[in-house]
Design a protein around this nucleic acid. Sequence first.
DNA 1: GTATCTGCAAAACATTTGCAATTCT
DNA 2: AGAATTGCAAATGTTTTGCAGATAC
Lengths: 142, 142
Amino acid sequence: MEANGTGIDGIKRYLMKEGINPSYQRLKIFEYLQNHRVHPTVDIIYNDLCKHIPTLSKTTIYNTLNLFEQRDIIKSLSIEKNELRYECDLRPHAHFKCKSCGNIFDIWQEFPRMIQQTVDGHRVTEQQLYLKGVCKNCSQDL
Amino acid sequence: MEANGTGIDGIKRYLMKEGINPSYQRLKIFEYLQNHRVHPTVDIIYNDLCKHIPTLSKTTIYNTLNLFEQRDIIKSLSIEKNELRYECDLRPHAHFKCKSCGNIFDIWQEFPRMIQQTVDGHRVTEQQLYLKGVCKNCSQDL
DNA sequence: GTATCTGCAAAACATTTGCAATTCT
DNA sequence: AGAATTGCAAATGTTTTGCAGATAC
């Protein structure tokens, strides 16, 4: 299930349906993820949002993202060492990270469907496919 | 290419062939990775190795693993947030992390071959497939 | 008025860096 | 001796925790 409806009101309904109290900060953080599909870090979210919410703290962003992830309305990516990135698109897809410009792209084609319910006898519930290389923009710059 | 030959001498030849000065610490760290295929963290390697090499420091382990990775004789895994794990098996395979016991298993079957040279126009040079769930040992304990 | 939420400051970790001491040849 | 390596201490960067004040119903 994903957030739908228009703007803040749709997000508010979505959070309430998921049992999450829709505080101002939580609404704005979720809205930010909806409008910025570049898989931002906490730092990026903070630096952008605190322009409009001067009292915002990073602690609140950490708390909120952890809450959202526990409630399965966002996902975190550990595609790069030592930094977490976030997205609110829950549909299964892969990610490509350009080693030149650092951008992360969603990859919808060729994503292998959940291999099996079980692999080697282990029950699989999540999968992440991370691709790395040089993106098309950086390739033509060379 | 992988390390072969017997024990320390094989590793020494391998490092030298790769242009890496085979110091005692480097030999022992590579040997540790060869003998402990559980994808250990720096901390695990340190705690085990410093029993036999009391003067060993974590800095040396970080330096050495970074050197090995730059020279492409080991790989790092960021399957879990905020911690890197290491392995010396360079053959393409996937990884399964059990959310119950925390163990990481190599998955050799069903690993999708490098999808394409390019995806969405981006040139792919690396891929990692991370699976998560409950391993067979933990499943039967329930 | 009571629960919850926020945000500051400090703590907790993982990793990197600067540099002096050590080792190897 | 000279070059490379090691390891201590300090710095860096990210995330978590404790708690007091603010907010919401």
